[in-house]
Design a protein around this nucleic acid. Structure first.
Lengths: 258, 258
DNA sequence: CCGCGCGTTCCAGTGAGCGGAACCACGCCA
DNA sequence: TGGCGTGGTTCCGCTCACTGGAACGCGCGG
């Protein structure tokens, strides 16, 4: 799809192409002009012009050694503005720190985004940095505890995920819709979700939803760590996270009324 | 400056306008079409088209209640990709967690960006969340300990800051170039920087630089907390941060050789 | 009901943006 | 050493995407 074909009703095709270019960097840290032109299906000169403009505002940077381009730090600044202004993040700030200190493991706050989950905040500890690999902020909703908690308590999200297919990054991932629905039923009865090795080997997590006044999940709180540490205290973590989820939901309702 | 006047040598004016529009949200959380059109000096219909396109990719979002626009969470995703791929952030990951646990206060990692400092990572604790207000990731280089450490050990940055003027957000900020230079001399001799109430009232910090092989600062590590807690242990924190800075610099040099 | 403010849509004119081609720099291999 | 391939950068003629002005639709307040 070249620039001319990026229909945006009432919008600008050139800007759409520039924004789509940014998404090319999700898979690859650095890209050359030629590869960008191939992926966007535009001429090399067009790709170059897009990159030059993005680079002029530090949305992209060029590696002087290789001549290749990567995402720039101005995105980081803008992104921090976006996320720290969300109500959810504001209300969760203190709670997340407490969870981190009480449990001693990595905590995170997630929301749905399309058919995936998006981690809005992830706080680590010394031992979690050592024990856990870095992982993605965006993941399919069926392979993590927080994703499953969100699916269990947000029927729209679950439906979207199932319709889009259930990816299976590891051998433990649930990819069968029937099994997935059964798992969601278990989670709804229990009130929290668990996952081990389903997004990536050697990571266990427990998650509970943050529910709105209709009982629909608006976010999920999770604790991550190695299976040997997390699995023995699953029930305890589940209760802790449920209580935290209720507190956060209450804080958000209070915030709206303020 | 309208769209037609946004010259980008070899670039695209329309894309430049879209990116400049994003910067309008630095000051204000939400903006209407009319205000955006005023700030960019473009027609309302042009502003609207830019916003519609940015919204189509979730770079902006529209508040359905007010009709106003704000930054969208896709920026957050892209920004996280940008920052987590920096060498510095990768090397500092574990070290920052240790510093936080050893000191019990908020730690941060900063770099220079134009005439300001940019906080790449800030780790909080429960008590720091309670004791410290939220503050900006971008600040002038003369009003924070990390900014002063970067100025003391990066002469170019210091020159740029002084030439651009020394802002004084509080009554304690150093705004006189002569006094500022004297302060930098003290920091260079001592090896670490301190600040109290200079960026915002009621916050103290200690910072030390991360130096490259020529002795030029490439980053700064800082600890922040309330004056009553930080000031009595300034010397101890200074030494701790200097050691951490040396270790980080060494890790980065090792990383490059890998 | 009318006026005002603001987000949204429409349309004619034109200049910004497109792609193809050439240029330049670098590394590699016979 | 020279030729080739790769990939970033620059140039140019053509055309259509983008611009601004104007109109529209909606909500609110007097």
């Amino acid at each position: 799809m070249s620039v001319r074909e990026r229909a945006v009703t009432g919008g600008l095709q050139t800007v759409a192409a520039a924004l789509d270019l940014l998404d090319c960097f999700a898979e690859d840290e650095e890209l050359g002009v030629t590869e960008v032109s191939r992926r966007l299906n535009v001429a090399k000169s067009t790709a170059h012009r897009l990159l030059v403009t993005l680079t002029s505002r530090n949305i992209c940077e060029q590696n002087p050694r290789t001549g290749k381009y990567r995402l720039g730090l101005h995105l980081y600044e803008l992104g921090q503005l976006a996320v720290t202004r969300t109500e959810l993040r504001r209300c969760a700030r203190s709670l997340l720190e407490e969870l981190r200190e009480v449990t001693g493991w990595a905590v995170q706050l997630s929301v749905t985004s399309g058919v995936d989950t998006l981690v809005l905040e992830r706080l680590m500890t010394t031992r979690s940095v050592k024990a856990l690999p870095d992982f993605n902020r965006r993941l399919p909703g069926n392979v993590t505890a927080h994703g499953k908690a969100l699916c269990a308590f947000d029927p729209d999200f679950a439906r979207r995920r199932i319709e889009a297919g259930l990816p299976g990054p590891t051998e433990f991932s649930i990819t069968d819709p029937k099994l997935f629905r059964a798992e969601l039923e278990v989670i709804r009865r229990r009130g929290y979700a668990t996952a081990t090795g389903e997004a990536m080997p050697g990571v266990s997590s427990v998650a509970a939803p943050v529910l709105d006044s209709r009982g629909i999940a608006i976010a999920a709180l999770a604790i991550n760590g190695p299976p040997s540490e997390i699995v023995p205290m699953t029930a305890r973590l589940g209760r802790l996270l449920q209580a935290a989820g209720r507190r956060l939901a209450k804080d958000m309702r209070a915030d709206i009324l303020r």
